[in-house]
Amino acid sequence: MDITVTVNGKTHDRLDDEDGPGESLLFLLRERLGLIGPKNACEQGECGSCAVWLDGVLVNSCLVLSAQADGCSVRTVEGLASDTAGPLETSGASRVPGTSGALHPVQQAFLDTGAVQCGFCTPGMVVTATDLLERLPRPSDAEVRREMAGNLCRCTGYQQIVEAVLLAAERMAGPASPEVGRP
């Protein structure tokens, strides 16, 4: 069967999955398209390391049959940085290694709060955090912990990750009055 999928804006035509029909979207992204951002840590939807957007919906790519992604648009952690408009000098954001792009505010916040140690959970955390902030721009500490409970980290004890999400929220939304953003 042939699969056509658009990943981070680039369309990949007629990817042949004859070798492994039944393979996951994670496998397709990593092994066929060479995108190493989505990570394989459990392959059963219990860790969130492989989180991506499938047609704008946050999913664990290990639980998506690659055939189900046919004709879909996928956005991975690699597609985040280009979202940020504006020159580097004014945004204060770090550069994406090997490119001229600037990091997304969520990525930058992860650096600024020391939320990264081994970093294996980080791509999934960044994607999940960005998804959360798109739905809930000013979450509380407890809301971050509840909404991101599907992403495991073994190094950090989570606190600096939560701080990163809250910092990114503040930077993206601007300081909010207590009423704003609380449904």
Partner: peptide, 26 residues
């Protein structure tokens, strides 16, 4: 039959479930 895949994919990965045909309802 497979819809969201949250059970079937786990069975295929972890329990060596190898169906000959998957009926994707998505």
């Amino acid at each position: 039959p497979v819809a969201g895949g949250t059970d079937v994919m786990v069975a295929m990965k972890l329990r060596h479930f190898r169906p000959e045909v998957l009926l994707d309802l998505s």
